[in-house]
Design a protein around this nucleic acid. Sequence first.
DNA 1: TAACCTGTTCACTAATTAGTAACCATGGAC
DNA 2: GTCCATGGTTACTAATTAGTGAACAGGTTA
Lengths: 114, 114
Amino acid sequence: MDYNQFKHCGLNVALGILSGKWKAIILYHLFHQESMRFTELWRIIPKVTKKVLLEHLKQMEHQGLLIRSEVNTFPPEVYYKLSDKGKALAPALSALEVWANEYAREEVDLLKSK
Amino acid sequence: MDYNQFKHCGLNVALGILSGKWKAIILYHLFHQESMRFTELWRIIPKVTKKVLLEHLKQMEHQGLLIRSEVNTFPPEVYYKLSDKGKALAPALSALEVWANEYAREEVDLLKSK
DNA sequence: TAACCTGTTCACTAATTAGTAACCATGGAC
DNA sequence: GTCCATGGTTACTAATTAGTGAACAGGTTA
């Protein structure tokens, strides 16, 4: 098998971008829902605080994974959605998911049962 | 495109396992070298301290990604290599690498230049 | 008028991770 | 004897991340 296909710099960057307690869930929901309001995300993700959720979203927007748009009404409406860069993560995330379900079943089931 | 292929639990588990400042480099080297001694890894990875490297290795061994074997000589010889579970990460890591090189070139080049 | 809503910020604490530096055991080289 | 080497440990500090709870603007509803 040829492993020369990946050099650690890219891997490092990718894992760095994906690091953060709530990144997986945020990505998961945005892959399934196209566009979501801040509060909607906040309500659907159990136990995150607004502050931390916002920090994650800001960081992801900054990294170009997410696009944020606000509708200037009252109360304000802010929508988050995946950018092309974010969408392009699909195959990699999917591969990670497949790996976890095949090789880390126990941990996955444990997480699911909570 | 069908994104239903990944559910966030598996993704969460995978990203959790892959989180840690030196995981990418450790994996990278073990994908390229089959088996490495502790000190060899320690010397080849710039700036990690023994303590932290050891913590990472222990954790990865515990999670079943790595196999540790010691030869009882003096001075001691301890070898680390990827398990099947670890090797099975190849496609996912490779996909992340590809993504980073395509969509996060700047960060990658920045890291490479250091 | 009071209470409610949304997206954000702020000041502060707690928890988790990483880093520093010294120390151990002990066989072999000098 | 003294010093080096290997794979660890330990006690302690620093840095990074996450969590808590309150505040704000200001239009809408009661």
